[in-house]
Design a protein around this nucleic acid. Sequence first.
DNA 1: AGAAAGTGTGACCACTCAGTCATGATTTTG
DNA 2: CAAAATCATGACTGAGTGGTCACACTTTCT
Lengths: 221, 221
Amino acid sequence: MILQKTQRRPGPQGGIRDTNRKERLRALGDAALRLFLERGLDPVTIDDITQEAGVAKGSFYRYFDDKAALLESLLRPVRDEVLGALATCARALGKARDAEAMFDAYRALGAVLAGAVLTHAGVVRLYLQENRGAPTGTRQQLATLSDEISRSAILVARKGHTHGLLRKVHPAVSALTVVGAVERLLLAVLRGEEVGNPLEIPQALTSIILEGLRVPATSAR
Amino acid sequence: MILQKTQRRPGPQGGIRDTNRKERLRALGDAALRLFLERGLDPVTIDDITQEAGVAKGSFYRYFDDKAALLESLLRPVRDEVLGALATCARALGKARDAEAMFDAYRALGAVLAGAVLTHAGVVRLYLQENRGAPTGTRQQLATLSDEISRSAILVARKGHTHGLLRKVHPAVSALTVVGAVERLLLAVLRGEEVGNPLEIPQALTSIILEGLRVPATSAR
DNA sequence: AGAAAGTGTGACCACTCAGTCATGATTTTG
DNA sequence: CAAAATCATGACTGAGTGGTCACACTTTCT
């Protein structure tokens, strides 16, 4: 785990210093996120970020080693939440004794992820925009997260498969189909593209996925 | 349409100059594609490309105005093929009189796209990696193509919907679900990720999509 | 209060990169 | 074959860019 550069700083918890630090951290993070979303990771310079945040360049380096460290600080909470939810789902699936319990686990996963999307809309959108790019430099950690998510999703799908819940296709195909569909739709919503009532999408998507992935109840065609 | 910088050059069709030009164009394109895939668009410099291609820097500018122009030359054939196939599919759907004819149109679209993927694997993979990034600078044209594809896909889905072929969800949801799933799976295959036998994927994906999107034949759950 | 520690600032430096251009070599033309 | 046109080359330039640092200022500690 990378050490935060803001550890072991003087002053009391709620003191002036502490408050200032938090404010600057927030300003830098906000500014960077705004610029990353608008222009992409690479073209945004440290000067751009500090100017947008209304802070001197030198101050940036007091808080972060470089652009990647700033991105890491934005990403960590989301990352923890998402990977945690996937792990929880995998655990619940392991314990599930019947199909209904498994559907519950999938539903719970969906709920947690939806919550994470709402509370971290900007970072999620950044992830969606950048995670497939070449895993170089600043973008590496996004690619890594993407990998971890895919692996977890495949694991979760595999459990659904060995329990005879899902269609007989390679688990990676089931998993990546869902991941791909969800990510594309989510990106459309977060970008404000025209997709009808966003609140109906989870419902629509769920039924599409269920009908498409699970073993057909009746033998239709 | 942007004019190719290599128009109106002297020498006979198969002359030495003509041959050299084609060879250099190919070397630059190949080198750039390799580097773009490996490092992403922005971090690759003109110096990188010319060095990888074994060509002097000045020569680059004899053939292309800048990095974006090179990318455009790589992208154009693929772009034309894909958008053409989508347009053809939309036309066929317009003429279709029964459900079977419509499925044929969708199948034909799939076949053409599959062919394009095979003959332009590198460029397609580059598109998949970069198309969702911020539409800035060099990446703009990829974002534009992504837009055009999504719009076409929605158009195609809308026809399937008005003909009562597809589930009652917003056409954008149907379309983006498919686009997202296909793109994610394709990326996995082109990157050599473990997804089982690649040849079985189209079959699996088709049945998943059909079952998921179309109006259920029997009323199952 | 005064000393010590921490913090913000922006000028500055070394380096990178896109794009240019003078030069000499190669090809075409007549 | 010789003049004219085109071409490849790589040194060079000017505009940034990442990262540093001396300095002045603020907060904390004793």
